[in-house]
């Protein structure tokens, strides 16, 4: 699977070099941006709400039993903002948006639309990759910020409602505020920015190297999603290690 890493690095680099052309492509960036938002906002809400809830449910009774009830807010808040929201939302977006990118560009490749662009002297990087990369790099951190807040809310509600935990809303958030600082949130959001670049690069690259008709498009989509997820989890470890200090 990693034989293409070199090509992906080159694609990413060429897209970075194309960044000054972003303003000219602003219409496509905003189209992509709103498409990403429309396609995933509701999913992000539901998913992060329940992730927050389940973490509270798992850790809450355990801590309360041992007299550590005042740590529940911290544990839930911390794990959501630094790990769960960035990673889970990025995986969701890889499945939801990365697949669409690979399918769209892949079918353009197969049906010679990209050849047609090249004969018109229109760079597929400027026209296709750049707007997608910029849009997802803006959208995913926003979605993750949103997911962190909703996840906290889910955790808090479970703590209030569950008899084995029974921590008040105020107590949950005051514990959360004691443990989690702004830098922790920024940390998680920054990671999601890096994951966005991974999703866009991997998916656009898979799209661009698609060959062999409709089955080829199917293969590209699968590979785009699987490779994105593997790279997200892998780089999550590296980034965490680096950001830990």
């Amino acid at each position: 699977m990693f034989q293409n890493v070199g090509e992906m690095v080159i694609l990413f680099w060429s897209t970075l070099l194309a960044l000054p052309a972003t303003w000219r492509q602003r219409q496509k960036v905003s189209d992509q941006f709103f498409e990403i938002g429309n396609a995933s906002l509701l999913m992000v809400c539901i998913l992060s709400f329940f992730i927050g809830g389940v973490i509270a449910l798992q850790t809450g009774p355990l801590l309360v039993e041992r007299g550590l009830g005042s740590y529940v807010g911290g544990v839930v808040g911390f794990s959501i903002c630094k790990e769960l929201a960035p990673v889970m939302m990025s995986i969701l977006i890889a499945g939801r948006i990365g697949s669409a990118m690979a399918a769209e560009i892949g079918s353009m490749r197969v049906y010679q639309e990209i050849d047609a662009l090249r004969t018109m002297n229109i760079s597929p990087i400027h026209y296709l990759v750049l707007p997608r990369l910029v849009a997802i790099a803006l959208a995913l951190p926003l979605l993750v910020t949103f997911a962190i807040l909703v996840g906290w809310l889910g955790g808090a509600l479970v703590c209030v409602a569950n008899d084995h935990i029974a921590i008040s809303f105020a107590a949950f958030f005051s514990a959360l505020r004691d443990t989690v600082n702004v830098q922790d949130v920024a940390n998680g959001v920054f990671k999601s920015f890096a994951f966005a670049l991974i999703i866009a690069t991997v998916s656009c690259h898979q799209g661009l190297i698609t060959r062999g008709g409709p089955r080829g498009i199917g293969r590209s989509v699968t590979k785009a999603v699987v490779n994105s997820i593997v790279l997200i989890v892998f780089s999550d470890y590296l980034l965490t290690r680096i950001l830990l200090k």
């Binding site: 079918s107 353009m108 049906y111 010679q112 639309e113 050849d115 047609a116």
Partner: peptide, 8 residues
Amino acid sequence: FQSGALLN
């Protein structure tokens, strides 16, 4: 192009 290759 033989197929037209219009952008769909």
